[in-house]
């Protein structure tokens, strides 16, 4: 079947999609957007986290056909066109919250969504918001720092999403 959707503001058409495949597969293998990672394919790790019509979801749990007509945002859409990193990406780099990087795209999407809802999150808010994203390298402390730094910088610049 054919699936048409908007990804990071651009209209995309995927052809020859198998009816039982996931949106994650469509993004990675059919649309050439490998930012969302495939690790567990069962909703446990969060490395495939994207936004589907604004909602934070695991792309591995969305059927391709359910994305028909949807507005999708992936990690590829965070940085500006000229390559300038998004403030959340900058904060992850500056705090050393990236090691192998496999979990990073999902954590960036989850952090961005959190700061949109809760500009000044408590540590408990951060832990709760990132509970669906596993990292096997960092031990999470640097990730907590990254989210706090991103929030502080956002408040400083008065940025509103």
């Amino acid at each position: 079947m054919r699936v048409t959707c908007t990804v990071n503001g651009r209209r995309q058409v995927a052809d020859h999609v198998w009816e039982g495949e996931s949106l994650l597969y469509v993004l990675r293998e059919r649309l050439g957007l490998p930012g969302a990672k495939n690790a567990c394919e069962q909703g446990e790790c969060g490395s495939c986290t994207i936004r589907l019509d604004g909602d934070l979801v695991c792309a591995c749990l969305v059927a391709a056909g359910q994305a028909e007509g949807a507005d999708i945002r992936t990690v590829e859409g965070l940085a500006a066109e000229d390559g300038t990193l998004h403030p959340v990406q900058r904060a992850f780099l500056d705090t050393g919250a990236v090691q192998c990087g496999f979990c990073t795209p999902g954590l960036l999407m989850a952090t961005d969504e959190l700061l949109e809802r809760v500009p000044d999150p408590s540590d408990a808010d951060i832990r709760e918001a990132l509970a669906g994203n596993l990292c096997r390298c960092t031990g999470y402390e640097a990730i907590m720092d990254a989210v706090r730094l991103a929030a502080a910088r956002r408040a400083g610049t008065g940025e509103r999403a």
């Binding site: 039982g20 996931s22 069962q42 909703g43 969305v62 059927a63 056909g65």
Partner: peptide, 21 residues
């Protein structure tokens, strides 16, 4: 929401002829 169904499909525990979204 697909949070049960997609896991079953991906891990080949279920291969229905039709999905009703």
């Amino acid at each position: 929401g697909g949070t049960d169904v997609m896991v079953e499909l991906t891990f080949d525990r279920r291969r229905p002829d039709r999905l009703l979204d």
